[in-house]
Computed example of a mutant assay.
Amino acid sequence: MHVAPVGGTAVQDHVALAEIELCGDLIIAASAAHEERLSLESIDEVLKVAEERTRGSGTGE
């Protein structure tokens, strides 16, 4: 069994950290909605889907 050494040698996985942050944002939004389900539009808003589509398309729309 290999155990990671103690100290400042941890490697940060930026993609995993971003996914964890997005999951946290969804949990907060779901908690704020109380007993209602989040709509697909609300989920897209929390995850900033439209911003990513705009950034990825290069059109700026």
Rank of each mutant, 00 (worst) to 15 (best):
M1P: 15
H2L: 04
H2W: 05
V3P: 02
V3K: 11
A4N: 10
A4V: 12
P5E: 11
P5N: 12
V6L: 14
V6F: 06
V6G: 05
V6M: 12
G7M: 07
G7S: 08
T9N: 14
A10Y: 08
A10D: 15
A10G: 10
A10M: 07
V11P: 02
V11C: 06
Q12M: 07
D13H: 08
D13R: 03
H14A: 08
V15Y: 03
V15E: 11
L17Y: 14
A18F: 06
A18W: 04
A18I: 03
A18G: 01
E19D: 08
I20Y: 14
I20S: 10
I20V: 14
E21S: 14
E21G: 05
C23H: 11
C23Q: 03
C23A: 07
G24W: 07
D25E: 12
D25H: 01
D25M: 03
D25V: 00
D25F: 00
L26Y: 01
I27R: 10
I27L: 09
I28S: 06
A29G: 08
A29M: 06
A30L: 12
A30H: 03
S31K: 14
S31I: 07
S31C: 10
S31M: 09
A32K: 15
A32Q: 15
A32Y: 01
A32V: 11
A33V: 10
H34F: 05
E35D: 13
E35Q: 08
E35A: 13
E35F: 10
E36D: 15
R37A: 07
R37P: 06
R37Y: 06
L38H: 12
L38V: 04
L38D: 00
L38T: 01
L38M: 13
S39L: 06
S39G: 03
S39T: 13
S39C: 04
L40N: 13
E41Y: 04
E41L: 11
E41K: 11
S42Y: 00
S42Q: 15
S42E: 14
S42I: 02
I43D: 05
I43W: 03
D44K: 07
E45V: 13
E45T: 13
E45L: 14
V46T: 05
L47K: 11
L47S: 15
K48A: 15
K48G: 06
K48S: 13
V49D: 01
A50R: 15
A50Q: 15
E51N: 08
E51V: 08
E52D: 10
E52P: 00
R53Q: 10
R53N: 00
T54N: 08
T54M: 05
R55C: 00
R55L: 11
G56R: 09
S57I: 02
S57G: 03
G58I: 01
G58V: 01
T59V: 04
T59G: 07
G60L: 02
G60E: 02
G60P: 11
E61S: 05
E61W: 00
E61V: 02
E61D: 13
E61G: 07
E61N: 07
